[in-house]
Amino acid sequence: MRKQNSNGGENVLVLGAGQLGAAVLEFLVPAVTKRHGRVSVIVSPGSRDEQGKLVSDTHQKLANAGAEFIAVDVAASTPEALKTHFADVDTVINCMGFVAGAGTQIKITRAVLEAGVSRYFPWQFGVNYDVVGKGSGQPVWDEQYDVRTLLRGQSATEWVIVSTGMFTSFLFEPAFDVVNLANKTVNALGGWDTQVTVTSPADIGRLTTDIYLHQPRIVNDVIFIAGETTSYRKLAETVERVTKQAFTRNVLTLSALQDALRHNPDDPMLSYRAAFARGEGVWWPMHDTWNAQNNLPTQDIAAWLKTAL
């Protein structure tokens, strides 16, 4: 059921305004406002100071552009409480990620469906959970598979999944330890020919807005986007070419990572490394992506790294 506001524009609610949420909002707010719609954003109560002022300059800029910020502790909220925030919304775009803890994505999805939201973009800005399935060694990925099952088991709410692969920046996250710029090491997950798809948050924000606006309207579909699909061998070559430095190369085999995980089952970065080392559902060919098919340029790893350096 469409709940468009009196001007005929859509009421869009974005959950979260972190790295991804802010990137989505940068493109979404002007696009929705231009169409006489309204964008609200749910952020944590800690996003405002004691005077009620938004702490983040990024959030304040988005508020100045027309986004309305609402403070809600999503992790502590019941599905019934969340439903009240979703009641007058046409589209929910979930950029909340895994920070809110296990079970939160299922809880949000149930609340969206029960509130009768017309269209939902779930937090699936990652790998292809249909291929990964359950039992990847990454418990939050199991939950993502369950979210898809829940959405496919109903017909009242339209859904759009945007599969992005890994955030490009995550390849260079010291804690993830794939490319460690400080130590000049590249650790291949699984093997040098294992592949991975990455997209920058800025590209995800722009393309998600394009997908949201696209006519004819995209309904009940998984859309694949990518900045680049690469092997770890090619990644090492790219890093050395851009930095003009030699890097020590190591392989973290799947069996070694699974052994380590047995000894440290609660290490989230270890479980991510093991899940990506499987090489299943974590990459797709560039020619299959929505951006390639629509001739929309995206930032590859070399371009991202030049900007970051």
Rank of each mutant, 00 (worst) to 15 (best):
V162L: 09
G165E: 09
F170L: 13
Q144D: 15
T164G: 00
G153A: 09
V186I: 13
E173W: 10
S163N: 15
Q138W: 13
T157W: 13
N183P: 05
P174A: 03
V186L: 07
Q138S: 14
G133N: 02
D146T: 08
Q138I: 10
V160H: 07
K134G: 06
A188C: 12
Q138M: 15
N180K: 03
F176N: 05
T149H: 07
E158F: 07
S163C: 13
D146K: 00
G153N: 12
Q144W: 11
N187S: 06
D142I: 10
N180V: 05
V147Y: 02
L151C: 08
D146L: 12
L181E: 12
V140P: 07
N183E: 15
Y145H: 14
A156W: 08
A175Q: 11
E173N: 13
G135L: 07
E173R: 04
D177M: 08
Y145N: 11
M166L: 15
V162F: 10
A188Y: 09
V160Y: 10
S136L: 09
N187P: 00
E158L: 13
T149W: 08
E158Q: 15
S169M: 03
I161E: 12
V132L: 11
P139H: 02
K184M: 11
G165K: 10
T149Y: 04
V179W: 05
V162H: 05
A175M: 09
K134D: 05
A156T: 14
Q154N: 06
V178Q: 03
Q138A: 15
G153E: 09
G135E: 05
V147H: 00
R148I: 11
L150W: 06
G165W: 11
D177N: 12
L151Y: 00
T164D: 01
K134Y: 06
S163I: 15
S169Y: 00
R148W: 05
